[in-house]
């Protein structure tokens, strides 16, 4: 695969679910085409039943395409060599409940052929990254949904993948966890990793994705860079720093003179997520760590290492 080639190439993908007698029951995906380029964070959006998960499962080789061409990292999705370079976090973290967090990661590491000190180092770093280093010996069956998602995310990154597929990664996470996942996605992208993200939470997608495809009824209804898609034609926004009252009146008068109408002027607001994170950070400084997860959202060292080191 050359650097210009898309990491994910889908051309006319169709997937039909059939009943026991092979009669068509549902056309889950209907002629989807899309390309995801290297180093891109690509969002797959759509309501329930729009074909997002089916598309992801075809990309992972869990479902066969009825029509169309699908290539992941330049090869068919069921190729074992492709899977070595892919990390996947499913919609639900389907973990073995009788394994503890460390054993879970050890199991998935073994599937990638990792062993010895390298494996243990990665596990330590990932547990630290997702804030579960203190619960390493607790069975994941006892974990909350958010904690299970974190372990799910850790297992998706154990092989230092080139392509990370995240299906609803922030589902079940608190705002801190959500922020952390977004930071991790951004950090992965900065390191040249490709991320395919499917989510219902549009704010999450908007925060981290470069491009999106919006699916409905198994078809792509809109696609392109987020900035272009969200642009409202003919509308502009002016951002200003602090203004005293006299300057504000002066500005409004000037604008009224130019536009022929008096514009509205509103104070800048933080979004709720930013406000929440500030409050929690303040509380943490005052009273130390609470129970549950502990993390700063720092990317695991092996994920930030240079390519030759990681190899």
């Amino acid at each position: 695969m050359t650097s210009e080639e898309p990491v994910i190439h889908i051309d006319g993908l169709t997937k039909i679910f059939r009943d026991f007698w092979r009669r068509p029951r549902a056309r889950a995906v209907d002629g989807i085409s899309l390309d995801v380029r290297p180093g891109e964070v690509f969002g797959l959006l759509g309501p329930n039943g729009s074909g997002k998960s089916t598309t992801i499962k075809v990309l992972l080789g869990l479902l066969h395409a009825d029509a169309g061409e699908v290539k992941v990292l330049g090869r068919p999705p069921r190729d074992v060599d492709v899977k070595k370079r892919v990390g996947y976090l499913p919609e639900e973290s389907y973990l073995y409940p009788y394994l503890d967090a460390r054993e879970t990661l050890r199991f998935y590491a073994a599937l990638f052929g990792l062993a010895g000190a390298e494996r243990e180092r990665r596990i330590d770093e990932l547990l630290d990254m997702v804030g579960l280093s203190h619960t390493g010996r607790r069975r994941v069956g006892e974990f909350s949904k958010g904690m299970a998602r974190r372990i799910g995310l850790a297992q998706a990154l154990i092989n230092d993948p080139d392509l990370v597929i995240l299906d609803e990664p922030t589902s079940g996470l608190d705002p801190l966890g959500t922020r952390q996942v977004k930071d991790i996605v951004t950090a992965l992208a900065e390191r040249g990793k490709t991320v395919l993200l499917s989510s219902h939470l549009l704010a999450d997608v908007e925060d981290v994705c470069d491009r999106v495809s919006i699916l409905y009824g198994g078809k792509v209804r809109a696609a392109g860079p987020i900035r272009e898609l969200l642009q409202v034609a003919g509308h502009l926004q002016i951002r200003l720093g602090e203004l005293d009252d006299s300057k504000r009146v002066e500005l409004l008068d000037a604008l009224e003179g130019i536009l022929g109408q008096r514009p509205d002027l509103e104070p800048t607001r933080r979004d709720l997520e930013t406000f929440f994170l500030e409050v929690v950070a303040q509380a943490r400084r005052e009273s130390g760590e609470g129970s549950g997860t502990r993390a700063e959202g720092r990317l695991a060292a092996f994920l930030t290492a240079k390519d030759e080191d990681a190899a």
């Binding site: 499962k57 992972l60 869990l62 074992v80 060599d81 899977k83 499913p90 599937l111 052929g113 297992q155």
Partner: peptide
């Protein structure tokens, strides 16, 4: 499903 997304034949 999780296991089969890993490089395991």
């Amino acid at each position: 499903q999780m296991v089969l997304t890993k490089p395991v034949s």
